[in-house]
Design a binder for these strands. Structure first.
Lengths: 198, 198
DNA sequence: AGTTTATGACTGACAATCAGTCATAAACAC
DNA sequence: GTGTTTATGACTGATTGTCAGTCATAAACT
């Protein structure tokens, strides 16, 4: 039998190299030739593992998104035990977006204008990936008797969309506290929030 | 005085030609050479009116978005006079998205995978462009005493984001009526809706 | 142990394509 | 006829994706 290689591992190696070069030079300014030089493989090898340049971009985005989602999930779990606490935790992460230092760096990179395609694809992964988390919070809240929602899945979509949209609204930093408060109010009203015992 | 040409008109001509070719072949598969051939001008002429290929893509998107926004605004105005009627009109347009036949065709085109960049840029224009319309509806509702909102601008962002997100949730056609009803409920709750006189 | 052979991984020069430039010409105004 | 703006299209440099062939490995067979 011939020489055998772990295809998945090889793919990851090349994707990791691509990721490094992307961060250095920006996605648009990176050529496939740059990537293979950084990965230490030949141009042809690249095309054994990725169909197109766009393919590797998507792979990198998926991997980044996955790590961010994991970080967010952890942060939410750490933010409290009740549904409302978890909701507020998720809101904070989404609005402020400071899970840790690398996340901030990543966010900066993603918002560079030449990396728009990357940003857009990421955003598209984001809300869907957070749906299960948000939905579980809503379900928990209903069970606790603080939320009043017939369709938790739909509620998760709606509220996450609202939160993300608010993040995009370009609110001046000075007005952020007020904006966050407003958005919180809208979300809780949408979820039919009533304090326990009232 | 030197030779004079209506620069804006010329730009529009080339953009219109670009738009035609984009619809035929997709944005990514269209070269600048294709555009100039269709417009009947030389390659150099193109660069007198657009800095880059991306520049003409943006121009086409802006023009499309503008027409769609205008159509939506008209549809909303025609849907009723009260804030709630207008809100429901806007919701219908956003969820069903059938302003007219050409809009459907356009939507198909925009959702072709190879036109993703176009779609993303369009989406980015969309919510911001609808904010004034939504905000005016909210303000009217507050004046009518049916909505209870402190910050109409923030409410507009939140609700529009929620509506758009719901549209992206990939609800099966069969479940759409229920989903629309759910989304409507979330929106009205977020806006603090109470029927007049209650 | 040594030789052959089968197989997939890998290579890098190369073809094809395309965005953007530039030297030159035409059209017009005065 | 001089000056200024618009227009031209051949050209360049760079980049993506391909392909004919090499290389390393291990099984199969002597």
């Amino acid at each position: 039998m011939p020489r055998v290689v772990d295809r998945t591992a090889r793919r990851s190696e090349i994707a990791a190299a691509a990721s490094r070069v992307f961060v250095e030079r920006g996605v648009a300014n990176t050529s496939v030739s740059d990537i293979v030089k950084s990965a230490g493989v030949a141009q042809g090898t690249f095309y054994l593992y990725f169909a197109t340049k766009d393919d590797v971009v998507m792979a990198v985005v998926d991997e980044m998104a996955g790590r961010m989602i994991a970080g967010i999930t952890a942060a939410v779990d750490a933010s409290g035990s009740t549904a409302v606490e978890k909701f507020l935790g998720l809101r904070d992460v989404l609005m402020a977006f400071d899970v840790d230092a690398t996340a901030v760096e990543l966010a900066d990179f993603m918002h560079r204008p030449e990396n728009r395609p990357l940003h857009d694809r990421m955003a598209e992964h984001f809300v869907p990936a957070l749906i299960p988390l948000m939905e579980s919070i809503v379900v928990q809240g209903v069970a606790e008797g603080v939320f009043n929602v017939r369709d938790p899945r739909a509620a998760a979509w709606f509220v996450l969309g609202g939160l993300q949209s608010a993040e995009l609204s370009g609110t001046p930093v000075a007005d952020m506290p007020a904006a966050i408060k407003a958005v919180t109010g809208f979300s809780l009203r949408a979820l039919g929030y009533t304090a326990v015992g009232s």
